[in-house]
């Protein structure tokens, strides 16, 4: 319980630090911090796991086990077009639930989801999936993460 609190405060300080200092509206540093953390974290988490069957299996892992240890809940909805696009929907994304759900705070949403985009991208990268992750917040506190798998 109390560990979540620490992470939440820490996250909001990271946002605070990276968003005010001379960066303007640039979220890339925030996303990169998430990426670096996700990349290293997944290496430790899945060390003793059997190999994932396929891409969908990996995504399911992100939605269930991964999400539930980090955010204490499952992703509410996973959709895919089976061509490399996945949409993960969280109806009450933890970093947004403490913010007023009126539309007037909507402009602040991007900075609170950028870290998590990076976290997903980093985790997938270390599982062998090269992707682009974006987030979309239409109404607080619900958030959709769009994962576009890059094939080369």
């Amino acid at each position: 319980m109390s560990e979540d609190q620490i992470f939440e405060y820490f996250h909001s300080e990271i946002v605070n630090y990276l968003y005010n200092e001379k960066t303007g509206n640039d979220l890339s540093a925030l996303e990169y911090i998430g990426y670096a953390s996700g990349y290293r974290l997944i290496e430790r988490l899945t060390r003793e796991w059997p190999r994932f069957k396929d891409e969908l299996d990996t995504m399911k892992f992100i939605c269930t086990d991964f999400w539930s240890v980090i955010y204490k809940k499952h992703i509410d909805n996973l959709r895919t077009n089976h061509q490399g696009v996945y949409v993960l929907q969280d109806n009450a994304f933890p970093f947004l639930t403490k913010i007023s759900d009126g539309s007037e705070k909507l402009e602040h949403a991007p900075k609170y989801v950028a870290f998590t985009c990076g976290l997903i991208r980093g985790s997938l990268a270390n599982l062998g999936i090269n992707s682009t992750v974006t987030a979309e917040v239409q109404t607080m506190p619900s958030c959709k993460f769009h994962i576009q798998v890059n094939r080369t």
Binding site: E3, F7, Y32, A36, S37, V69, I70, K72
Partner: peptide, 27 residues
């Protein structure tokens, strides 16, 4: 077999904090 190796939430949390902190310091 995957059921048997569920993730340990406490451990993951502290590792996430450690790793995120490291990323922040290097940034």
């Amino acid at each position: 077999s995957r059921q048997a190796t569920r993730l340990d939430a406490k451990k993951v949390n502290s590792e996430l904090l450690t790793l995120t902190y490291g990323s922040l310091v290097s940034q």
